[in-house]
């Protein structure tokens, strides 16, 4: 078990930029204390929710994001959208004063679309998310929730000795 953990720590990828600085430090021999590469974070899931007024724009954007994920080698999960949009309605009288039976409705529709990506390292997630956020079309709101994996902290592994 312990051995597995050790190998795992070695196999864990390092953050791209910090790795570069570490290697350059060793090559140049300028700084005697080479910075310890910070272990990268691991994300099991990245869920992206998009909201927009035009479903066609959302569809095109989903196609773009999934194509980019394919090029970057990211595992794609379920991509779906609810069949009906959210309608926010307001009902008013049609005339100014009376005629209660004649009403008029205004509505604002919000279409939703969801995408899921699995098994991303921290640097991959940052790169990918920034790329697709930069190319977000107008009139689309994006909401990205990420699930980070963490080890149990040291002080919670063993029951406290003195209480």
């Amino acid at each position: 078990m312990l051995k597995v953990l050790k190998t795992l720590r070695w196999a864990q990828p390092v953050r791209a930029l910090s790795a570069v600085t570490a290697t350059s430090g060793t090559q140049a021999h300028v700084s005697p204390t080479t910075p310890v590469p910070e272990p990268d974070k691991l994300y099991s899931k990245l869920e992206i929710e998009m909201r927009g007024i035009d479903p066609a724009v959302l569809k095109s954007y989903t196609w773009f994001a999934t194509t980019a994920a394919e090029h970057l080698g990211i595992e794609k999960g379920k991509c779906w959208s609810p069949r009906k949009a959210h309608h926010e309605r307001m009902t008013l009288l049609k005339s100014v004063h009376i005629y209660k039976k004649h009403r008029v409705q205004y509505e604002v529709r919000t279409h939703f679309r969801y995408m899921n990506f699995h098994k991303l390292t921290g640097s991959t997630l940052d790169t990918f998310l920034e790329y697709i956020e930069r190319n977000l079309p107008e009139g689309v709101a994006l909401q990205a929730s990420r699930t980070e994996l963490q080890q149990v902290p040291e002080h919670l592994r063993q029951p406290p000795e003195q209480v």
Binding site: V4, L5, L8, L72, S145, E148
Partner: peptide
Amino acid sequence: FCTPWPKGLETEAKWQRHFPIEVTTTD
């Protein structure tokens, strides 16, 4: 700038043994 997913953690059962805590944040 991308790094591959580490080997040995392919399935959920495997990564839950070493990384049991899940922290979810939203941007």
